[in-house]
Structure formats: structure tokens, C-alpha cells
């Protein structure tokens, strides 16, 4: 930065707040030494900070009397109330007028809900033909002989003949 390349007001503000890099800080420092216009702007920026700090010191307040103890009491009390708060918030649920119907509804929901999730098994079916054939085999004199006659005749066999 040279004397022609004037720093912006933002750069001067950053300089006042010590937020420029070492290189830029040195460049602004050197520029201010030789540029009265920028030095004046810098003084205004620096002065604003001084005025604000002086004003803050002047209006600084002491803690109100007993305030420290009140803070500690309030913190401990708020902690205790937050610990029991959730129990108190849901205490109404345990009244019989509410708890009994809720429990009944819950039981019904579980019963029917379980039915929907696990549908009942299909009723067992017996293949009639297989049943008759195995019964016939047991009733025959020689159950597994090829010549053993079936004691019953199916309608389909009659029509086939």
C-alpha cells in the first residue's frame, strides 16, 4: 500500500480492531504516518471505540443487592422443578377415570392388532381322495397287492367305463 492507495474505512476499522494481517497492518501503519486525511479518518474510528468504552465504564452497574443469592436460589429451584415437572405433567394419566378406559382401549387394540399382524392359520383341509384311498388300502386283504380291488367306485371311473 502506498500513499495513493488509501485504505477504505472498513480497512481502517479492521486496523483499529487489530484484525488485519501483519503485512496489511504494517502497510496501513506506514500509510497513516504520511497521509493526514487517512490519519484523520483513523482518529475518528479509534475515537468512536474510546468513547464507547468510556461510556460503558461510566454507566457500569453493580449487581443489585442480594441478586447473587437470588440467582443461586432460582437455579436450584428451577432444577428441582424440572426434575419433578415431567411427573406432574403426566400425573393426570393415573386418575382412574382416565386410566381404566385407556387401559381397556389399549388391551383391545393389542388383541385386534395382534390378530391383524398374525392372521389365523387356514383351517386344515383333508384331501378326500387321498383319505379314501388310504382307508381302502388298510381295509384290503393284501393292501399293497396290485390286484386288490377298490371297495368303492368313483363316479369318474363309472363314466370312464
Amino acid at each position: 500500500m502506498n500513499n495513493v492507495d488509501h485504505p477504505t474505512i472498513e480497512t481502517l476499522s479492521d486496523y483499529v480492531h487489530g484484525e488485519l494481517s501483519e503485512r496489511d497492518d504494517a502497510a496501513v501503519h506506514a500509510h497513516l504516518a504520511g497521509c493526514s486525511a487517512c490519519a484523520e479518518l483513523h482518529d475518528i474510528e479509534a475515537r468512536l471505540g474510546e468513547v464507547l468504552r468510556a461510556h460503558a465504564r461510566a454507566e457500569e452497574r453493580e449487581l443489585p443487592l442480594g441478586f447473587e443469592a437470588r440467582i443461586v436460589d432460582a437455579a436450584i429451584a428451577s432444577d428441582a422443578s424440572s426434575a419433578t415437572g415431567w411427573r406432574e405433567a403426566f400425573a393426570w394419566l393415573w386418575r382412574p377415570a382416565i386410566a381404566v378406559p385407556v387401559a381397556a382401549a389399549l388391551a383391545l387394540a393389542i388383541y385386534f392388532g395382534a390378530g391383524a399382524v398374525n392372521p389365523p392359520l387356514r383351517s386344515a383341509t383333508i384331501d378326500a381322495t387321498s383319505y379314501v384311498e388310504s382307508h381302502t388300502a388298510l381295509a384290503a386283504d393284501m393292501p399293497f397287492a396290485d390286484s386288490s380291488a377298490l371297495p368303492v367306485t368313483f363316479a369318474s371311473e363309472v363314466s370312464a367305463r
Binding site: V51, A54, R57, E59
Partner: peptide, 16 residues
Amino acid sequence: GTGRPLAENPIDDYVE
């Protein structure tokens, strides 16, 4: 400004 501490340096005096 009532009840506030008195300023302690010239800048503070001026600002006050």
C-alpha cells in the same frame, strides 16, 4: 447518570 461511579480518567470525564 444518578448513582453511577465518577469517571476516572480525562476521556471518561469528557465523555460523561
